[in-house]
Amino acid sequence: MANIMYWEAIQRAHDEEMARDPLVICMGEDIGVAGGTYKATKGLYEKYGPLRVIDTPISEGGFTGLGIGASFLGVRPVIEIMSVNFAWLAMDQMFNSAAKVRYMSGGQLTAPCVFRAAGGAAHQLGAQHSARMEKVFMGIAGLRVVTPSNPKQAYGLLKSAIRCDDPVFINEHELMYNMKGEVPDTEYFHPLEGSEVARAGTDITLFGYNISVHWCLKAAEILDKQYGISAEVIDLYCLSPLDRAGIKASVAKTHRAVIAEEDEAPVGVGAEVMAIINEECFFELDAAPVRVHSAMVPQPYNHTLEKATIPDHEDVVKAVLKLFGKA
């Protein structure tokens, strides 16, 4: 096991897959000569050259479509969207071309491409560089959506996404690229479906994904030490399709649920998990599930306002205590 950073894990996955298959390419803004804004493609340009490590113009709709078109002929492009906010410009191609082509061609064509995007609120990046947009992607038929919460997942999910014949959107987080974690030394493929028990518990389930898994883990520790509440943390690394069976199994055990997301509440992961709980295990519930989410505002620049917009582990603790009638 190597203890490496999230960006190093992504870089390693790229490197191994590119070394294995000459049709694996990567493309995006500043990913080549500059080595990538978050270093996720560092050193690849020198190793694989400009035909396979493509510095694109700032044309998200164009280069995303170009990658998808290449994938029609068997190329496996990993397309980096520098900030997920720019993905709005590429969504026509992602949704109308990549996600639908298999269906509307009656199974003749497929778009085996990977879209990677850095999302989330970082530090005072303002309204147009702080969006959380996973909710948009997880509502699209024909597109798989995963979101790694640690370096092992970042490595293994990218490996599996490149191999998979379906288009896969990988939602990363700007604040997590320097996070360290254990990654197996041998080749590892993380499942593109399912969920993970990040911490076992008996009294309540905390659902998180990507950065909010870490709020949940921290909250679980506080709840255990200070309040004697045993919280289970479920890591929903796969947002589409959501792990119905995993959600049900945990809630059937704990009978209570809090869903933590960095995104705004409407039409989000929390809403979807709640719907699944309703459909799958309503009569198992001892209390109404609660969502922890950001405020419904375009991200403010001001530091204090930004902090007030985005939830954290303390908000998760508060929600749990309220649910137990302790707040």
Partner: peptide, 20 residues
């Protein structure tokens, strides 16, 4: 059926031809 959508798809197929 999105007007203009095939432009980059065509360029992408050309990119694949170039690679292969």
């Amino acid at each position: 059926a999105l007007v203009g959508g095939p432009f980059p798809l065509a360029a992408g197929m050309a990119k694949a031809i170039q690679l292969k």
